[in-house]
Computed example of a mutant assay.
Amino acid sequence: MTITRLHSGPRMSQAVIHGNIVYLAGQVGAPGESVTVQTQSVLAAIDALLAEAGTDKTRILTATIWLADMADFAEMNAVWDSWVVAEHAPARATGEAKLATPDYKVEIIVTAALA
């Protein structure tokens, strides 16, 4: 079965397509911005990668969201709730983690079915 990698670098690919599934790397927003702005830019990046892979957010199977501080949960959810298509909401987990730099407040990882 073919494996296709999108936007590959020496350490990672932004997306990997295998079979009828696309796996996205963790997406982060502009360092230092608010949780709202970072979440908006992360979701825009997810939309773009999914489109490039031939699918969209209605086909997301799972989402894992990492927040640097769970105090930002409601702020992130406000952006998420306006983005996600309710009748196509994926299985989702959210947790708190130390992200790559202190300027990152949210990281989102998704897996989606191809259209």
Rank of each mutant, 00 (worst) to 15 (best):
H18C: 05
T58G: 03
K57C: 14
Q40A: 09
L49K: 04
H88R: 08
T2N: 01
K57T: 14
G95H: 05
L24P: 03
P31G: 13
G19M: 06
E107K: 13
A44C: 10
M76F: 15
F73W: 05
L43E: 12
R59W: 13
P90S: 01
G95D: 11
V85E: 14
L6F: 10
T64S: 13
A86K: 13
A89H: 06
D56G: 14
E107R: 12
V106G: 01
A44Y: 12
A44P: 04
A68I: 12
G29W: 04
V16E: 00
P90I: 07
I60R: 10
G9S: 02
A68Y: 02
H7G: 00
L43W: 15
T4E: 09
R11L: 05
K57V: 12
G54Y: 00
E87A: 05
T4Y: 11
M70R: 02
K105D: 06
A91K: 07
L67G: 12
I3Y: 05
D56M: 10
S8M: 10
R92E: 13
V37D: 05
I3L: 12
D103W: 14
E33F: 07
A68R: 14
W66R: 00
V42W: 08
T58M: 06
M76N: 12
L99N: 07
G19S: 00
M76R: 13
V42Y: 01
D69C: 03
A53L: 03
D81G: 13
G95F: 06
E33P: 08
A86L: 13
T4C: 01
V16M: 02
A74I: 09
E52P: 02
Y23L: 10
I17E: 06
L49C: 00
I108A: 01
A115T: 13
L61I: 15
R11H: 04
V35K: 00
E107Y: 01
G9E: 04
A51G: 09
D81T: 15
S82P: 09
K57I: 11
Q38V: 15
V85G: 01
A93S: 14
E96M: 11
S82Q: 12
N20S: 12
R59K: 15
T55R: 04
L67D: 13
P10G: 03
S34I: 02
E75L: 03
M70P: 10
A115K: 08
I17N: 05
I46G: 01
Q14F: 11
H18Y: 08
R59I: 13
E52L: 11
P102Q: 10
A48Q: 11
I17F: 06
S13M: 01
P90Y: 09
S13R: 00
L6C: 02
I3V: 14
G95K: 13
W66V: 00
A15E: 03
T94R: 12
A63R: 08
I46A: 09
L50E: 10
G26Q: 04
S13Q: 02
W83R: 07
A93M: 09
L50W: 12
N77S: 06
A89T: 14
